[in-house]
Simulated scan of single mutants.
Amino acid sequence: MTIPHYQLSVTVNVEKTLAMRKRVNEKLGKSDVKVSVNDFIVKAIASACKRVPTVNSHWMDTYIRQFSNVDVSVAVATPSGLITPIVFNADSRGVVDISKTVKELAQRAKDGKLQPQEYQGGTVTVSNLGMYGITMFNAIINPPQSLILACGGLQEQIIVDENAPNGFRKAQFITFTASADHRVIDGAVGAQWMAAFRDNLEDPANIIL
């Protein structure tokens, strides 16, 4: 890769996101829709891009193009290779809407039925290998985008909790690694974006603000 890039990793306590996911799915009841952790991640990415908009940009060789809408490319493994269908305007969509869209796009991607405009473009990408038992990994930037977020799987860790009987308890964490184009996103800006993203998952009320 010729892009001058760097990686930033953060391990996030996702207890509140898991609890909200459970409540949302309970409200949905017997409907066909069941939201996943990945749906919340897509929304958290979009929200973080609105808070730190420099990340939501393309490197165009002679200039940088910054986008107002956040179109999240979601990496999907298909029999013929990796493809990245796009959740357009993810910043202005709810988690249930995102969930329906991702499932539909992923199925059509696996069936080879996506139109080019549905996977070419996007302003930022997410790649999730957590379902394969991966703890963390580095993903390759999807040019001309400037950032891709790699998501590991759920990990149990022991944390201090003064309210717990023993003073500690188990908690659920996920490690995320962002690969960023340094020509567009300085390290400090990348760190600000990761902090915003972490805040969104540690307290998912942030994604509706």
Rank of each mutant, 00 (worst) to 15 (best):
V55G: 01
H5C: 13
Q117N: 14
C151Y: 06
V160W: 10
K170N: 15
A205C: 13
L114Y: 11
I140A: 02
A195G: 07
T125D: 10
A205V: 13
T125W: 00
F176G: 00
D186A: 15
R169P: 02
Y119L: 01
D97G: 00
N25Y: 12
N128D: 02
K30P: 04
I207R: 00
L105F: 12
I158M: 12
S47T: 15
V160A: 14
V96P: 06
T123D: 04
F197L: 01
G187N: 04
A19V: 04
I41A: 04
S57N: 08
T54Q: 12
I141N: 04
D97Q: 14
I64R: 03
F88A: 11
M194F: 09
R108P: 06
A205D: 09
D181W: 02
V10C: 07
V12F: 08
Y6F: 14
S47F: 13
T175E: 00
Q172L: 10
I41K: 00
Q120S: 15
Q145E: 14
Q7N: 12
G187Q: 06
F197G: 01
K22S: 11
T78I: 10
Q107V: 14
S146N: 02
A205Y: 12
P4D: 07
V96Q: 07
T78R: 01
Q66C: 01
L8C: 07
N142Y: 00
F173Y: 11
T78N: 05
Q155D: 12
D32M: 08
I158R: 06
K16S: 09
A191V: 05
I158Y: 00
I174Y: 01
A109F: 04
P85S: 10
V126N: 04
M20D: 01
F67K: 02
R169W: 02
V74K: 06
V12T: 06
A191G: 13
N163T: 14
S57R: 04
D203N: 14
Q117W: 11
N142A: 08
R183D: 11
N69H: 12
P144G: 07
S80Q: 14
G133Q: 09
K100G: 08
L8E: 05
G190V: 03
D111A: 15
C151H: 08
P165Q: 05
T135C: 03
Q192A: 13
V33W: 09
I64S: 05
G190L: 01
Q145V: 02
I208V: 13
P143T: 05
S31H: 01
R21E: 11
P53Q: 01
L201Y: 09
D61A: 12
D91M: 09
R108A: 10
A139K: 03
K50M: 10
I148M: 09
I158S: 07
